[in-house]
Design a protein around this nucleic acid. Structure first.
Lengths: 224, 224
DNA sequence: CCCTAATACCCTCATTTGGGGGTATTGTAC
DNA sequence: GTACAATACCCCCAAATGAGGGTATTAGGG
């Protein structure tokens, strides 16, 4: 089998090797043209499916991978996850038309290092490639906003949280790392009874009935 | 009391009004010089403390707020949170020397829209101001990488998760919404004993010892 | 045909947890 | 100077949880 690896050997240091995973031939071709037009970039391989990507890319040894999400059979998310296991140090930038929240978060969970929309300008894509190689996480600005927003506390209840005393927040912190009352007591040099009585007031203030709910409240983000 | 509001009225549409929260006078002055040198930007107010910011900024009506984290008494995190309640639509960019993970996430939780390091180039700060006003979330690239990394599934265990059967995942889902065994049993029309036995195998497969840890595993991100 | 995985259920027992009471000290606010 | 919040500790008790056993049925693969 002859994979479509353009350069068999590692490209010279001066040239950045890009791998492209995109099932639409016309789009794929135009990306190659755009990327090679930058100067200093070479498309070391183009893959029309996730399966091909997993087979070919580890041999092609690109410096960076551009990945579409909507692929036949296996999605770009699953493909990203598998490639990250095979090549943990090769950055992957998602390049897609889709900007659905669930998809964004699932690709990032799968290990993507950046998320660009296909409608981005060629110059922005070039910047994204350079950025990801210098340790950044390039995102279209609408994507970045959503990612950042996802950190916001869900119920926007700084009121409830403000009511928690310093010690209570400390206890809640340990609770949210999965520690038992006994372990929390040891860490804080308190008696288990004290921890238990803190928990009672914490539950009260957060309007929850068990530790799991308290942890969810504490760790919740704006997403869903 | 005369707050240090430079422009009492809303600046003309052509000019972008910036508020600055920074306790070090020399730094504050140099930021004002840099920002006003851009052209099209005006510092409508500078605050040397969080308390002053909360009092003055809502009156100054800036288009964007630049916030230091390390402030005397009340931190920039708490200040961000309060300002977001008062001015939910005014973007806040954190501008700090600190790049500790916990701080980054806590500022984003508090409602920050961007996170720039003070060592950024003036041109990057200008870009950040424009970016945040056009719906982006400007971050220094090292920060963006950390934010994106925080989404990664902690143990990168698609293996363990794949081992969970459909029913087990279903149970884990309810567990992660804070339901008790009894409630899960009712939702799935199972006996509590069945739920309990599912939990045992789930704990086993996820290598955890209690429900809180299981929930954390299920909802976990690379952070911590 | 046997083996395994998945499903669903049962029992026991020690421990943990949640809810209900308390008490005491300290420091701050009014 | 008294009221209050925060801190830290105590008791009891019922319910829930975790751990360690099980059993039975069904479906599918080799």
């Amino acid at each position: 089998m002859k994979p479509n690896v353009v350069n068999e050997s590692k490209p010279p240091a001066a040239t950045i090797g890009v791998a492209l995973v995109e099932d639409q031939k016309d789009l794929s071709d135009s990306w190659v043209r755009i990327i090679e037009s930058y100067g200093g970039f070479t498309c070391v391989c183009t893959c029309a499916s996730a399966e091909e990507a997993i087979r070919v890319i580890p041999e092609a040894r690109p410096d960076v991978i551009l990945m579409d999400i909507r692929l036949p059979r296996m999605s770009g998310i699953e493909c990203t996850s598998r490639l990250k296991q095979l090549l943990p140090n090769t950055p992957i930038i998602i390049l897609t038309v889709l900007d659905d929240d669930e998809l964004i978060f699932r690709t990032l969970e799968a290990g993507a290092d950046g998320y660009m929309l296909k409608r981005s300008k060629p110059a922005d894509l070039r910047q994204a490639l350079l950025d990801v190689l210098s340790g950044g996480a390039p995102m279209s600005s609408a994507i970045a906003r959503r990612v950042v927003r996802s950190f916001r506390r869900a119920p926007s209840n700084p009121r409830d949280e403000a009511h928690l005393s310093a010690r209570e927040i400390e206890v809640l912190g340990f609770l949210s790392r999965g520690l038992s009352n006994k372990e929390i007591a040891e860490h804080l040099h308190l008696s288990v009874e004290t921890v238990r009585s803190y928990l009672k007031t914490i539950y009260d203030k957060l309007h929850v009935r068990c530790r799991t709910e308290a942890v969810l409240r504490y760790t919740s983000r704006a997403r869903q």
